[in-house]
Amino acid sequence: MSYARPSGLPIVDAMTPAVLVLVGPVTRDEVTGLCDDVRARLEATGASVVVCDVGGLGPPGLSVVDLLARLQLAARRAGGRIRLRDPDPALHALLDLVGLRFEVEGKVEEREPALGVQEAVEPGDAAL
């Protein structure tokens, strides 16, 4: 007996990013273990991204910036990168202040309209 191939895209685990939930405060001793976790998740899944849920890290500070920079470095050395999920606006501002750019999950890239948004044309507008 044979079965028809299911329609749609196949489910591939390597394409689904691993998620690392960070709960703070994180001590300096825990940073090395978290970096090892990032490398292990990249190698185990074959994905190029590890999503770091930073919503539970608590108030942003330089220790959080240091942690995220080290996680990004560990991911880059393993051939991947990290993506932030649920960052506090203050953390996002602090990362911008120190010059670190992280990809944020669900954030629309600059200069691109959000999906489903269309520009309206008003009568009398000049054609471009």
Rank of each mutant, 00 (worst) to 15 (best):
S2V: 00
S2H: 00
A4K: 11
L9G: 05
P10G: 06
P10A: 09
P10M: 02
I11G: 02
D13M: 12
A14N: 09
M15L: 15
M15V: 08
T16W: 10
L20C: 07
V21E: 03
V21C: 06
V23Q: 14
P25H: 15
P25V: 15
P25Y: 14
V26Q: 04
T27R: 07
R28F: 02
T32P: 06
G33E: 02
L34F: 09
C35N: 11
D36A: 15
D36Q: 14
D37P: 00
D37Y: 03
V38S: 02
V38E: 07
R39T: 12
R39M: 09
R39P: 00
R39C: 10
A40N: 12
R41Y: 04
E43G: 01
T45P: 01
T45G: 04
T45K: 12
G46Q: 07
S48W: 13
S48G: 13
S48E: 15
V51A: 09
D53N: 10
V54N: 01
V54H: 07
G55F: 06
G55C: 05
L57S: 06
G58M: 05
G58F: 06
P59M: 13
P59C: 07
G61R: 11
L62N: 11
L62R: 10
L62I: 14
V64C: 08
L67F: 05
L67I: 13
L68R: 03
L68N: 09
A69E: 14
L71M: 14
Q72T: 11
Q72P: 00
A75F: 03
A75V: 03
A75Y: 00
A75I: 09
R76S: 03
R77S: 12
R77Y: 11
A78H: 02
A78C: 03
G79Q: 06
R83D: 10
L84E: 08
L84G: 08
D86Q: 04
P87R: 04
D88F: 10
A90I: 08
A90G: 11
A93Y: 02
A93P: 00
L95S: 10
D96L: 06
D96P: 01
V98H: 03
L100C: 03
F102T: 01
E103N: 11
K107Y: 13
E109L: 07
E109P: 00
E110K: 08
R111N: 14
E112L: 15
P113H: 15
A114V: 03
L115C: 01
L115D: 05
L115Y: 08
V117K: 13
Q118L: 15
E119K: 05
A120N: 10
E122H: 14
E122G: 05
P123R: 00
P123L: 03
P123K: 00
D125G: 03
A126H: 08
A126K: 08
A127I: 08
L128G: 11
L128Q: 02
L128F: 14
L128M: 12
